Amino acid sequence: MDDAFTGAERDALYKAIFSRRDVRGQFLPDPIPEDVLRRILLAAHHAPSVGFMQPWNFLVITDPAVKARIHADFATANEEAANQFDGERRDLYSRLKLEGIREAPVNLLVTCDRERAGPVVLGRTHMPTMDLYSCVCAVQNLWLAARAEGLGVGWVSILHESALKAILGVPERIVPIAYLCLGRVSHFESTPELAIKGWRQRLDLDDLIFRDRWDNRDSPPD
């Protein structure tokens, strides 16, 4: 059929998926060309959304002063987070670099407008959080497109939502979904950084698959 992927196109998609990384410390200062930024935002805008409500907005941040205020909130939140771990786990946490807010040339806040499609939305009548999940799909689209463009992306979740909204002037009804750092990088790690640093390892897929019922573990193929 005409819309079938060629073998090379299929392989390129899987390459983007398997080589995507959460980047923290490898950002270069090179600016992102506007046409490239536009392409990855367009990819995000073509994510699936329940009821085709398209609840996302994209707030692009390049002002160093704004980044500095966001980073100051991260520093406070990160110290609070470190105190929730004990012993060796806390020591390891304190050694991890968990953001690239000031180093990345572009920061991006992806948000969700939960009122965009009105009070009753196709597909949200029984699962009202589907608008939030739709925005996460937009984040994933953006992340894969960025990887294909040679850009690194880092998701910073160690922030106070109230401070984030105040600094960026986000309206009360709008929900922040993902604060992302974007930019060219010196390299992409071959393995997720948290695995390299010993925080967690990737789980075995066969342990996560069930068939027909939750208590019926799927058998891997021979």
Rank of each mutant, 00 (worst) to 15 (best):
L96S: 01
V60P: 09
L142S: 00
T125M: 12
L98S: 03
R95P: 04
S134P: 11
A65M: 15
C135F: 03
V66I: 15
A145V: 03
R114Q: 11
D113F: 01
A77Q: 12
N107S: 15
F58N: 04
A77G: 10
A75L: 14
V136L: 06
V136D: 11
R114V: 13
I101Q: 06
Y133R: 06
R89A: 15
W143V: 00
T129K: 11
V120P: 09
E103D: 13
K97C: 08
V121R: 11
R90Q: 15
A81I: 00
A138F: 01
V121L: 04
D113A: 04
P55D: 13
G118H: 04
C137D: 09
R95H: 12
A68I: 05
G87Q: 08
A145D: 00
E80F: 10
V120G: 01
T76F: 10
R124Y: 04
A65W: 09
L142D: 05
N141A: 07
P128T: 05
L122P: 05
V106S: 00
P119K: 06
R124D: 07
V110M: 00
A75K: 13
E99G: 03
V60Y: 02
D86K: 12
H71M: 14
E79T: 14
N57E: 15
D63I: 10
G100D: 08
W143G: 01
K67N: 10
L108Y: 02
I61G: 06
I61H: 08
R69P: 11
T76K: 14
S134H: 04
T76E: 14
N141M: 10
A75I: 06
I61M: 07
A68Y: 10
A65Q: 12
Q84Y: 08
V120C: 01
V106R: 03
T62C: 09
P105H: 00
V106K: 02
T76S: 11
P64A: 02
E88F: 02
E80V: 12
D73A: 06
R102Y: 02
H71I: 07
A117D: 04
P119V: 02
C112R: 06
I101L: 05
A145H: 02
P119T: 12
C112G: 01
A65F: 03
L92K: 08
A82E: 13
H71G: 11
